[in-house]
């Protein structure tokens, strides 16, 4: 059974590219337009990996990660940040919040798939 990835980003074109790349590799992709939408969808569905942006309206990526880690069912689900932010300070904040990895945009589809396969198989 194909694994499900929750892609959270306020940019429609970025979500489209993430979904296109991951679906071609055989994954199901659920899309969310911001952190709050991501949190709602994570509660509704069983997700194997969360891929989230940082800078989004309503709820940002770090807040989403903290909220997900607060849910019993998401304590061990891998969460990767996919963001334009590349500072060490932001990475440290992401790690402290519970992120398992940090990917700086733009992403290369092949490398994204390699990372996802490494994290969830």
């Amino acid at each position: 059974m194909a694994k499900t990835i929750l892609a959270v980003d306020d940019s429609g074109s970025l979500r489209q590219m993430v979904a296109f790349s991951l679906q071609a590799a055989g994954y199901n992709v659920v899309q969310a337009v911001d952190g709050q939408d991501g949190l709602n969808k994570a509660k509704e569905k069983t997700v194997d990996l969360v891929l989230t942006d940082q800078n989004m309206p309503i709820m940002d990526g770090l807040t989403l990660i903290k909220s997900l880690r607060g849910l019993g069912s998401y304590q061990k689900v891998p969460i990767l940040m996919l963001t334009t932010e590349s500072s060490d300070e932001m990475k440290a904040r992401g790690k402290a919040a519970g992120a398992n990895g940090w990917l700086v945009k733009p992403f290369d589809p092949k490398r994204l798939i390699e990372v996802v396969q490494k994290v969830i198989g």
Binding site: G101, P106, R111, K118
Partner: peptide, 21 residues
């Protein structure tokens, strides 16, 4: 609020770095 001054620093469209914690 919520805006970082340096969040988009990319100068070209090569792929960004990846770090797993």
């Amino acid at each position: 609020a919520g805006e970082s001054c340096h969040s988009v620093q990319q100068r070209h469209l090569g792929c960004g770095e990846i770090e797993l914690f």
